[in-house]
Every structure is written in structure tokens, then in C-alpha cells.
């Protein structure tokens, strides 16, 4: 019963926050434009979070997100230039390559996945900043897609596909199995490394899509493209109540609920006109409360 209540916290938090802002902002929160903005604003993080959930399900962390996003954008621009369809395809390809590179370092190089991801993050950021210092990468044409329909469509496709793959295919189910007990999974004849690699590839694909959406929002690529993406995604997933140690407790809904909480809170605090000196404090308190109540502490039992 208590565990079930805990699982309700992220959903309840989202509902309470939604209602709180709906009733305390003189109707500003519920305006058409604001709700559309919320969907568009949360899309980049939500898309990346869906892919990251696959990696987290098998008990790993992907820290490469921001750097991989910047790297995908820069490399795609250098090849495709202003050719948008080709640019988008290449972003996906380079995103997947980044994911596979992390997997390679982790599986073949026996490097912890979060370290492999961090290396890729720094490398990607470095490349992006070096190229941006010498190349003006304006993508004005991409901005024409900055509308609710496009973002909604991308979100629906990614979330629905992610949900189906995660819950109804071997790819998703085995990630949770690996996260619960990798040894047992291996002994049962499942190729653990292959499924881990697929998870990183999926995460890479979503990074590629997130990179496309970032360029659509920014109309340019700069050294800071995708800055803080990894932090936002991991925070959103934590707020959504994801199991940090992976396994069967990992749910795809964490990506959606957590991202919405993250962006609704940011939006609502602006609508309130809260003093900027207090914004981060309020956010921290809210995040701490949500995570403290909802986090799965079973992984800490051994430590105690």
C-alpha cells in the first residue's frame, strides 16, 4: 500500500501543480498559447528522456546527451549545410553513432557507461565550440517548423513508439530484466551486451531527434547548443519517479510526467512573477520533496 502511494507521488505532484497554477495565475496558465508553449518547450527534453529511459532500465546512466546533441548538429551541418531534410537525417545518424560509441566504450572498453558518456559530452562540446568559433552556422530555414503541430507530431511518434518498444517488445523487456539481475539474464541465454547496445542506439536516436528540435528552436548552431540537456533529462526522469537502479520498476511514464513537472514548474513560477533570487530555491525544495517521497530506496538497503 505504502509503495503504491509512493508511486502516485509524481502523478499527484503533476496534478496538484497543474491545478495550483491553473487557479493562481488569473487564467494565464490555461491560455491556449501557454499550453502550446509548454508542449513545445518540453518536447526536446521529453524526447531525449524517452531514449534515456532505455539506458536507465538496464541500470546505466547516459551523460553524453548535451555534448552528443551538439556534436550531431555540428557534424550534420558541416555535411548538409542548409539542406534541412539531409540535416535531419544526418542528425539521427550521428546521434545513433554517438550512442553506439558510448556502448562500445562501455561494453568493449569496460568503462562505466556514465564515464563513457561524460567523455563524449566533453568531446562533443569541444568540437562544437571549436567549429562554432570559425563557422557561422545559421539555420534560419529550420525555424519555420517551430510550431505546435510539428512538435506535437514528433512527440506523439516518439512517445508512442518508445512506450510500445519499452513495454511490449524484447528490447524493452530485456532492458528491465538486465537491470534487475544481469547475471541471471545472461545465464538464461540472453545476449546482454547486444541488448545494452540497442538501448544506447535508441538513446542516440532520440538525441538525434532532440538535436533537430533544438536547431528548429534556435535557428542556429552554436558552441552551447544542447547545453544542460543531460542535467534536465536526468532531473526530469528523477522527478517522474524513475528507478535509478533500473529493473522492472522503470516506467516510461516517468519521462513524460517528470518532463511536464519540470517545465510546468518553470512556466508557473514565471507566471507568478516570483523574485529571481527565490526561483531556484523554490525549484530545489519542490524537486527535493518529490524525489524524497517517490524515490525507490531499495537499492540503498545494502548500504544501511
Amino acid at each position: 500500500m505504502r509503495e503504491q502511494m509512493k508511486k502516485m507521488v509524481p502523478v499527484a505532484g503533476l496534478v496538484i501543480m497543474f491545478l495550483l497554477f491553473a487557479f493562481t495565475t488569473d487564467g494565464k496558465f490555461l491560455t491556449r498559447v501557454n499550453l502550446q508553449n509548454l508542449i513545445i518547450q518540453s518536447a526536446i527534453t521529453m524526447v531525449a528522456a524517452v531514449g534515456t529511459a532505455f539506458v536507465m532500465a538496464h541500470n546505466n546512466l547516459d551523460f553524453s546527451l548535451g555534448g552528443a546533441c551538439a556534436l550531431s548538429c555540428v557534424l550534420s551541418y558541416l555535411i548538409a549545410g542548409q539542406n534541412l531534410p539531409l540535416f535531419f537525417i544526418l542528425c539521427m545518424v550521428f546521434g545513433i553513432v554517438c550512442g553506439l560509441f558510448s556502448a562500445l566504450l562501455h561494453i568493449k572498453g569496460q568503462i562505466p557507461a556514465f564515464m563513457a558518456g561524460m567523455c563524449l559530452m566533453f568531446a562533443g562540446r569541444g568540437v562544437a565550440q571549436s567549429v562554432a568559433a570559425n563557422t557561422n552556422m545559421l539555420m534560419v530555414g529550420a525555424a519555420s517548423l517551430n510550431n505546435i503541430w510539428f512538435f506535437l507530431l514528433v512527440l506523439l511518434v516518439v512517445v508512442v513508439l518508445g512506450f510500445l518498444i519499452f513495454n511490449y517488445t524484447k528490447v524493452g523487456k530485456y532492458q528491465k530484466l538486465i537491470g534487475t539481475n544481469p547475471k541471471a539474464t545472461e545465464l538464461s541465454g540472453i545476449n546482454v551486451n547486444a541488448y545494452k547496445t540497442i538501448a544506447f542506439a535508441i538513446s542516440g536516436a532520440t538525441i538525434g531527434i532532440a538535436a533537430c528540435l533544438t536547431v528548429i528552436r534556435s535557428a542556429s548552431i552554436i558552441g552551447n547548443t544542447g547545453l544542460n540537456l543531460e542535467t534536465n533529462v536526468l532531473l526530469a526522469l528523477s522527478l517522474g519517479g524513475i528507478s535509478i537502479t533500473g529493473g522492472s520498476a522503470t516506467k516510461m511514464r516517468s519521462a513524460i510526467i517528470g518532463t511536464l513537472i519540470f517545465f510546468i514548474l518553470n512556466n508557473g513560477l514565471t507566471l507568478w512573477g516570483l523574485n529571481p533570487d527565490y526561483v531556484d530555491i523554490v525549484k530545489a525544495v519542490f524537486f527535493l520533496l518529490t524525489v524524497t517521497i517517490s524515490i525507490d530506496r531499495s537499492q540503498y538497503d545494502m548500504i544501511a
Binding site: 491556449r32 498559447v33 501557454n34 508553449n37 534560419v140 529550420a142 525555424a143 519555420s144 517551430n146 510550431n147
Partner: peptide
Amino acid sequence: NGGSSQNSG
């Protein structure tokens, strides 16, 4: 489209 700029290009 309010805040979301549809027409940049």
C-alpha cells in the same frame, strides 16, 4: 501562434 514563432524563415 502567440509565443511560438511559426514564421522565422
